[in-house]
Design a protein around this nucleic acid. Structure first.
Length: 930
RNA sequence: AGGCACGUAUGUCAAUGGUAGACGGCCACCCUUACAAGGUGGAGGUUGGGGGUUCGAAUCCCUCCGUGCCUACCA
């Protein structure tokens, strides 16, 4: 029976139809007792998401308030090849928290999902599949290959989107985008043409990072540098002398094979050792070529021998020097990293590393190898396939960045946009990088991607156009060949915030949701992506693409290492969901926020326990919910409300206030802490316990039902506060509360099916924050805690009742205790509470001092060891005296009272006075024991 | 090499220059009718070392040690 009751679709009408609510069905409690004692996250995770999706809760259209403020986020598009890792889970959690929060606040909310076509990764992935069939992409040809990639995408791409559903990500699937969609491709072509027409895109010969495996150029940002233990070879080059004298110049190199392409040796112009050699000719060994010695400031006289071999065709720095000195370029290495014909017949066709060995061998044979030393240097590798990069000269397309860069920098300077969180250090990181920006190599020698919209005539004349038709018209001929290269993947990603909204058309979405509210992303793509989006946004829309940028921390493994596929130290978020539930995992991730954090299962476990605590608190409320109803009126009888009710209202409103402020400043950790403590400490530990007496009464009565209604009403508010962080459990429970209906929805969503995700997020009501209730409640809590403390220290059996004697000078305090004797007696397990102005307790009592100077005694004839008890009191006094000493020293310092703010001095005096009072009370108690 | 962070309880992390906290773990006692994934109570810190500024420093400055990240170059 219980199992069917718990089904989402049918349990609510079954339990809470009006008839049941009216008739006080006795069976209700029995049925509800069958709610399991532990929360099973999987059950909720299975059905709830689909329901939200079916009802269209994620789309901004659900909000029908024309005046609603706008909140929008575009997802950093994950690679189509990717599957969910911790970094995604972290970002998605934060974006979902923000989105759900704003949605519940009545904003018209859009969180737009989508994917990136990920040029190199995807092409590699499909090529690898082909390899299994014994094919290469060249066997298929370009068209068939691209078709095959699309097929792969449809069949197995986008795993991550399914996983996002499990995460509870409230993205609008109706607006899902892919960077290779027709719409986005059109935006890419439009941007390319406009930049070309503005003279910002050009084609030219440059030395570039070439990946010999992937057969494509890579941008600097796609290259990773790794330290490498290698060798430094000292090669001697004979100088051409008129008198036939054997003179040599020694150069040091890590890549001897490139000497075959040397066209000069450079020295620093200020270097005395070589001054007279500048201009002298060298006969380059193994080649028979003659090359000059030149002088250039770039050369560091301190390093190596102070003389550098120059290979303009195969080294970026040498290339630049070659340009400065008009040196010839000799190509000795080809695109497959093999030696060319120009390297000489001994080397032609050799792999670069084989060639290196052979060069060294030959130098040694010639007696020109001076020495070889061990040397550690960093080597450039392809980020994707880890092949060592070969710098090569080739014709590529470039984008000039100066103008774009300047606008982005000005935006930061004048408006402080985008606003980075954490501002330190990312604002500086961002601007520093922009200031040193170089031109962007945008062409890639791949097949998968946006083919460059440039066409060539048979004479090689180029026409850049939005379409082949446009190009033909411009060229006046049908005989055009399109540039075979595709654009860097980032050339579509950098348009993401507006291309996804329909640009270049002036769509409603673009007008409504651009600029987006915030970008949540990882720090390693601040340059690759964030800065470029700002530049494109400024250029093409004239406005920043996002107001805020939140940079997440990194989830590390337990040794503080980055999680990575190669290290196999990654933790799969899906496994964690499976083990602890999505909601618990989300709390951990929300707590991570912007700090680097080592992953720790204990943390998830503790939040799993928290979810269970919520479950059981709700279970208790439901078991005692006959005659109760969630209602804003539950607290309307304000004047007569008991202390604990006024107190929980105050706590609730402070919590709403604090969570709101925390989220405003992206302090996710603080928001989680606030909610955790409110729910567990305030609501469970105290409120439920304090209201239990009324709520669990056997017989129905107006008092009982009112107390029950207040209880479920507070619970309902708490669930709403928790919802953005823990969407599943809150929905699961919310649906079961009595009296939950469409009236609880935010006004912007009236008419929608009742769901907590469209309920109004609790806003602080300053009028309900009640400092007096809080301080009175604190006094009661303090008293109960002290009695519990005494019981524990003196090993009083839990079942034994004790007498509690209270002495308080303050009449108001006595009134507070008097008004709550039943509560105190119940929670402290006391048989009676006697409150007097002065404490008058039997000698055989355990005593304690409360905050505010009240005293409490628990008579324990036979249990008290007088000496031990005196010692206990002495220890406590000692603690206080230590603190008092510190405060006294502070006050004794004349500088303190002179320079510290008046309130601080006053506060210190009060604290000291309080301590003095408590100390003397403890003293008297000790006396009483003699 | 330069730059930027970080270093707090046994672990993971908090703390506008003003009483150093939370969670987990640990110890003791309790299956008290929402919850043992729980309850009650408790132990545990010269905030990496040293110096300085200040009435007052985990917080600001200097320095050393350790860790991480970024950028550039390394012929």
């Amino acid at each position: 029976m219980a199992a069917s009751v718990l089904r989402y679709e049918n349990w609510r009408p079954l339990l809470y139809n009006d008839a049941l609510l009216k008739t006080e069905n006795r069976k209700l409690k029995t049925v509800l007792m069958d709610i399991p004692k532990t929360y099973d996250p999987k059950q909720a995770e299975q059905h709830i998401y689909a329901r939200w999706e079916e009802q269209g809760c994620f789309a901004p259209e659900i909000n029908h308030d024309p005046e609603a403020p706008i909140y929008s986020i575009v997802i950093p598009p994950p690679n189509v090849t990717g599957s969910l890792h911790m970094g995604h889970a972290l970002q998605h959690t934060l974006m979902d928290v923000l989105t759900r929060h704003k949605r519940m606040c009545g904003y018209r909310t859009l969180w737009l999902p989508g994917m990136d076509h990920a040029g190199i990764s995807t092409q590699l992935m499909v090529s690898r599949e082909l390899k299994k069939e014994g094919l290469t992409r060249h066997d298929l040809g370009r068209e068939k290959f691209v078709e095959r990639v699309w097929q792969w995408k449809h069949e197995s791409g986008g795993q991550i989107l399914k996983q996002m559903r499990r995460e509870g990500a409230s993205v609008d699937w109706s607006r899902e985008r892919f960077t290779m969609d027709e719409g986005l491709s059109r935006a890419v072509r439009e941007v390319f043409v406009r930049l070309y027409e503005d003279g910002l895109i050009y084609r030219g010969d440059r030395i570039v990072n070439w990946c010999p495996t992937d057969q494509t150029v890579l941008s600097d940002l796609e290259v990773e540098k790794t330290p490498q233990a290698g060798k430094l070879y000292y090669l001697q080059y004979p100088l051409k002398t008129t008198n036939g004298e054997d003179r040599r110049i020694t150069v040091a190199t890590t890549r001897p094979e490139t000497m075959l392409g040397d066209t000069a040796v450079a020295v620093n112009p200020g270097d005395e050792r070589y001054r007279e050699l500048v201009g002298v000719t060298i006969s380059l060994p193994l080649t028979g070529r003659e090359i000059p010695v030149i002088a250039d400031e770039y050369v560091d006289a301190e390093f190596g021998t102070g003389a550098v071999k120059i290979t303009p065709a195969h080294d970026p720095n040498d290339w630049e020097m070659g340009v400065r000195h008009a040196l010839p370029q000799v190509f000795v290495i080809d695109q497959h990293a093999r030696m060319t014909e120009d390297a000489g017949k001994d080397f032609f066709g050799l792999d670069r590393y084989k060639a290196r060995e052979l060069v060294v061998e030959k130098f040694e044979a010639l007696g020109l190898l001076e020495k070889v030393v061990d040397y550690e240097f960093s080597i450039s590798k392809c980020e994707r396939c880890k092949t060592v990069i070969e710098p090569l000269i080739s014709t590529q397309w470039f984008c000039r960045m100066d103008e774009l860069r300047d606008r982005a920098l000005r935006l930061m300077e004048t408006e402080g946009k985008p606003r980075f969180t954490p501002e330190v250090p990312y604002r500086k990181v961002y601007t520093d990088w922009l200031e040193n920006l170089r031109d962007w190599t945008i062409s890639r020698q791949l097949w998968w991607g946006h083919q460059i919209p440039a066409w060539y005539t048979s004479e090689g004349k180029v026409f850049v156009a939005r379409s082949v038709e446009e190009a033909r018209a411009a060229a006046g001929t049908e005989e055009l060949t399109q540039d075979p290269d595709v654009l860097d993947t980032w050339f579509s990603s950098w348009l993401w915030p507006f291309s996804t909204l329909g640009w270049p058309d002036e769509t409603e979405d673009l007008k409504t949701f651009y600029p987006t509210s915030v970008l949540v992303t990882a720090r390693d793509i601040i340059f690759l992506w964030v800065s470029r989006m700002v530049m494109s946004g400024m250029k093409f829309i004239g406005a920043t693409p996002f107001h805020d940028v939140f940079i997440t921390g990194t989830v590390l493994d337990k040794h503080g290492q980055r999680m990575s596929k190669t290290k196999l130290n990654g933790i799969d978020p899906m496994d964690v969901f499976e083990k602890y539930g999505v909601d618990a995992t989300r709390l951990v991730l929300a707590s991570v926020g912007s700090t680097d954090t080592r992953w720790n299962d204990n943390q998830v476990e503790s939040y799993r326990n928290f979810a269970n605590k919520i479950w059981n608190a709700a279970r208790f409320c439901l078991m005692n919910s006959e005659g109760a109803k969630v209602s804003p009126d539950a607290f309307q009888t304000a004047a007569e409300l008991p202390l604990h009710d006024r107190w929980i209202l105050s706590r609730l409103n402070k919590t709403a206030r604090d969570v709101d402020e925390a989220l405003k400043s992206y302090s996710f950790h603080e928001a989680v802490q606030t909610l955790y403590h409110f729910f567990w400490d305030d609501f469970c530990d105290w409120y439920i316990e304090l209201t239990k007496a009324d709520v669990t009464a056997e017989e129905s009565s107006p008092i009982r039902n009112a107390a029950r209604s207040r209880l479920v009403t507070v619970l309902e508010q708490a669930l709403r506060l928790l919802h953005p962080f823990m969407p599943y459990i809150t929905e699961e429970l919310w649906q079961r509360l009595p009296g939950v209906d469409e009236k609880l929805l935010h006004p912007a969503y009236t008419g929608a099916q009742p769901t907590i995700m469209l309920a109004a997020y609790p806003q602080r009501d300053a009028g309900l924050i009640d400092e007096r209730a809080e301080s009175e409640m604190n006094a009661v809590i303090d008293l109960i805690s002290r009695v519990r403390n005494i019981r524990s220290e003196l090993s009083v059996k839990p079942g034994d009742r004790v007498r509690v004697l209270v002495g308080a000078n303050d009449e108001k305090l006595r009134d507070v205790f008097a008004a709550n004797t039943d509560q105190i007696a119940r929670l402290a397990r006391a048989s009676e509470i006697n409150i007097h102005e002065r404490l008058d307790a039997p000698r055989a009592s355990a005593r304690a001092v409360l905050a505010g100077g009240a005293e409490v005694a628990v008579p324990l004839e036979g249990l008290i060891d007088f000496a031990q008890e005196r010692e206990r009191l002495a220890r406590e006094r000692e603690k206080l005296q230590k603190e008092a000493a510190k405060l006294e020293a502070q006050l004794a310092n004349p500088q303190f009272s002179e320079r510290a703010p008046v309130e601080k001095v006053q506060e210190t005096r009060e604290r000291l006075a309080d301590i003095a009072q408590r100390t003397s009370a403890l003293q008297q108690m000790a006396e009483a024991l003699k």
